[in-house]
Amino acid sequence: MRVVALLVLLVLELAVFASVSGADMSSMSGILNYLELKFLDLVPGLAPVLVLSVGMTLVLVTAGIDLSVGSMLALVAAVMSLFDGGTAFWFTAVPLGLVVGVGLGLFNGALVARLDVPPIVATLGTMIFYRGLCQLVMRDAERAPFFDVPGYEWLGGFSGALVTVGLVAGVGGWFWGRSRWRRELLLVGGNRVAARYAGVPVDRRLMETYAVMGMLAWVAATCFTARNGAVNASTATGLELKVIVAVVLGGTRVEGGRGSLIGSVLGALLVAVLDDGLREAKGWSDEHLPFEISHFRYLLLGLLLVVGVWLNTRIGHRDEG
């Protein structure tokens, strides 16, 4: 139901932006051509949001939230950028990035599970804190060792991004769908007390969830750096909202206990197309609108979040019974 609705929305969105950007829409081949170009361009840029929204789905399922994903991504990328390019990068910076990512995720998890800080407050705090660490690491510099690493750039291309996303969303999704872990997380999010009574190690599951989020932040950081090639202290600010909006639009409830990975992936596509479309529409908007359309993006994201949550509370009970 929701999947169909999301697909329809996606097509509508593409159509609107295509007409705004003035692409040739008169023939079938024109449309296909446009779509091909669009996706070649879109997928690599979309990869970080997609990867993170997979993790965010898990976090929301546990009735949590992670606002620190943007800062985590930036911090992991910053730490990796401290190394010089070259083959050794693969054996030093990349594994270290993984360790940092998981460590940051575990720190979030510890705050939520062990100290009982409400997730939104805890991760709002770490969002600021990690960004602060990022500033400490980066100072005012911008570093770009990534394109000097052999093979790294491939990750940022279409095929590399597709493989990464496929691994995370496909294999991860397959595992998620069939795993015992998922059942336990659904219980933790749906009724934490019942989870404790059913013998689910609630604290541990929460820690694991946030750690997975940290790991995915590392994956997203590699996708991001492989495409952009450079990182600075304010990289990926505001990314968390995009991710949350994507997941919420995909039908995952913020109250926990239910979530759909396919929905999240479609939601991420929707948000990315919107984002991309707004960027493309710059030429159009400069003529027709008195302000920069990128500012409008934030407004739209906020609006989408409210509408998404509202729809979820409204139709959540009827959907997928």
Binding site: I120, G238, L241, I244, V254, P290, F291, E292, H295, F296, R297, Y298, L299, L300, L301, G302, L303, L305, V306, V309, W310, T313
Partner: peptide, 27 residues
């Protein structure tokens, strides 16, 4: 009015109002 938590509404506001501020000054 919408019956959704203030937490979510204001999280959306966190982004939307920043955008609104930018749009306002630009316009």
């Amino acid at each position: 009015w919408l019956g959704i938590p203030a937490l979510i509404v204001t999280l959306a506001g966190l982004a939307a109002y920043r955008g609104l501020a930018l749009v306002l000054v630009n316009v």
